[in-house]
Amino acid sequence: MALGTIGDQDVASRVEATIQRRGRDVRGTGFRFALFAALGISTLILVILLVDVLTDGWPVLTDRLGDFWSGTLRSRSSDDSLGISQGIVGSFWIAVFVAVLAFPIGIAAAVYLEEYAPRNWFTSVLDIVVRNLAGVPSVVYGLLGLFLFVKGTAVTNWFVDRVNNRWNAWYGEDLIELGQSTLFAGGVTLAVLVLPIVIITAAEAIRAVPQSLREGAYGVGATKWEVIKSQVLPFAAPGILTGTLLALARAVGEAAPLILVGAITGRLAPRDSMFSGLEDFFGQFADRFTAMPIVIVGWVQNSGRDEGFGPAAGAAIVVLLVFVIIMNSIAVLLRNYFEKKRG
C-alpha cells in the first residue's frame, strides 16, 4: 500500500485537514438563520406588543391608578370616575361560573372517557364530539348563549319560570329575566366554551397515570371508584390543575361570546350593594353586566370620538394581561416542574 510508505504523520495530517474543514456550508447556515429569524421575529412581536400596551396605558396607570381601579364605565374619558371596577367584578364572577360548572363537569367527563368508557361506537362518537367542540370558533358559542338565554327557547322558558316562581314565593320578584343579557348567561356561555379544553387536558393527564398504579390498587381489592379517588386523580392532579388554569385564563380573556350574548360596552349603572344580602347576591346574576375584555373593546371603539379612551384601554389591557400571564405562567411552570420530576 502506497499510503503506508508515505508515513503515518502525513496521513494523519491529511485526515485532520479533511474532517476539520468547516464554515463552507453557506446554505445550511442561511437555513438555520432563517429559522432562528422566525423565532426571533415572534419574540420581537411579543416585546413590541407589551411595550406598546404599557406605554399607551402608562399615563393612566401612574396618574390615577386608585381611581381607575375603583371607577366605573363612563361616557367621557375625562370623567374622574372612569375605571374598571365593573369589568373586574364581571370577570371575577365569570371565573367563578367557569370554576363551578366547567371544572367538575369537565374533569368528571375526562374520568369517564379514560376510566369507564367501554370501547364501542358510542365512546368514539363522544371522543369526536369533544375534539370538534374544542375547535368550534368562540363566536358560535356566543350564538348558542344568545339563543338559549337571551332569546329564550321552550326549555329555557320552562326552567326560568320554575326558578322565578320559587323566587317569587320568597322575595316577591323575578330572579331571571329572559330577553335580557345577564351575568348568568355570560358565565354559563363561557363555562360551556372552556369545557372541551378542560376535558382534553384532564384526559391527557389521566392517560399519563401508569397502569401499574391502577393494577396495584385493583390487586388488593379496590373498587373502580377507590382506584380513581386514591390513585388516578392524585397522580393526575398537577396536569389537571394546569389544564384548569389555562382554561380559566382563556375564559377571562375571551370577549366574542360575551359580545354576542350582549355584555355592556357603553354605560352601566353602578351597583352598590353586592354582598348586602342573599337577594342582592343572587340578584346580580340577573343584571346586565360587563367584563374586562368587554371594557377594553368598548373603550377602543369610543377612542374614535374621544381620544382619551385609548390610554384607558391600554391601562385596562395591562391589568388583564398581568392576570392572564400570571395564570399561564403558573400553569406552564407547574407542568414543567412535574414533567421534570417524573423524568
Partner: peptide
C-alpha cells in the same frame, strides 16, 4: 375476589 386473592406484580409498583 381480589380482596381474598392478592397479587404481586412483575415490576414493583408501590403507590407514590
Amino acid at each position: 375476589v381480589r380482596r381474598r386473592i392478592g397479587m404481586v406484580f412483575q415490576k414493583p409498583n408501590p403507590f407514590p
